[in-house]
C-alpha cells in the first residue's frame, strides 16, 4: 500500500472499487442468483408457482402486481440478491413485466435480508427481543408503501 501522504491516483481508486465489486459479485451476487433460479425452477416444476400466483393475486393486485410477485418478496426477506434473481427469472418467463420490476425494486430492499440482519444489526446494537417483530412489521409495511408509491410513480 502507498504512503499516507501520497494521494492515490484516481484510476487506482476506481480499480480498488471495481475489485470490491468483483468480490461482492462473486461471493454474494452469483451464489444468491443461482439459488434463486433453482428455487424458481423447483416452484415451476411442482406447480407451486402457479398456485402462489392464484393465492396471492388479490393481495398483490392492490399494488398493481400479479400473484407470482409474492415469490420475489418472500425471497427478499431471506436474501436481497436472491430476490433480484427471482425477479429476473420471472421477468424472463413473462410472469413479470418491466413495470412490475420497478414497483418491486425498492420493496425488495426495504424488507430484505431481515433474518440475517436481525443478528447483524439488532444483535450488535442490543435491541430488546420484544421489539424485533415490531421492527420486522414496520419493514414489511415500508415495503408495501414503497410498492404502492412506485405503482403510482411508474
Amino acid at each position: 500500500m502507498s504512503e499516507v501522504t501520497k494521494k492515490p491516483m484516481i484510476t487506482d481508486v476506481f480499480v480498488a472499487g471495481a475489485r470490491k465489486g468483483w468480490n461482492i459479485a462473486v461471493t454474494s451476487t452469483v451464489p444468491n442468483v443461482l439459488m434463486a433460479f433453482v428455487v424458481i425452477k423447483a416452484l415451476k416444476i411442482t406447480g407451486l408457482l402457479d398456485m402462489m400466483g392464484t393465492v396471492f393475486a388479490p393481495v398483490m393486485a392492490v399494488v398493481g402486481l400479479p400473484g407470482e410477485a409474492a415469490a420475489v418478496l418472500m425471497g427478499a426477506w431471506m436474501s436481497m440478491g436472491g430476490a433480484v434473481g427471482v425477479a429476473v427469472s420471472l421477468f424472463d418467463s413473462g410472469h413479470l413485466t418491466g413495470e412490475h420490476l420497478a414497483i418491486l425494486a425498492p420493496a425488495i430492499y426495504l424488507m430484505g435480508s431481515q433474518i440475517q440482519y436481525a443478528g447483524r444489526i439488532l444483535g450488535v446494537v442490543g435491541t430488546k427481543a420484544k421489539l424485533i417483530p415490531i421492527m420486522i412489521g414496520f419493514s414489511v409495511l415500508n415495503a408495501f408503501i414503497a410498492m404502492f408509491l412506485m405503482n403510482i410513480l411508474v
Binding site: A18, G21, T29, V33, V38
Partner: peptide
C-alpha cells in the same frame, strides 16, 4: 442462473468502482 449472474458482474464492479 449462473450465466445470468455472470452478466451482472460488470454492473456490480462498475457501480462499486
Amino acid at each position: 442462473g449462473f450465466i445470468f449472474a455472470f452478466t451482472l458482474i460488470p454492473t456490480v464492479m462498475f457501480a462499486l468502482a
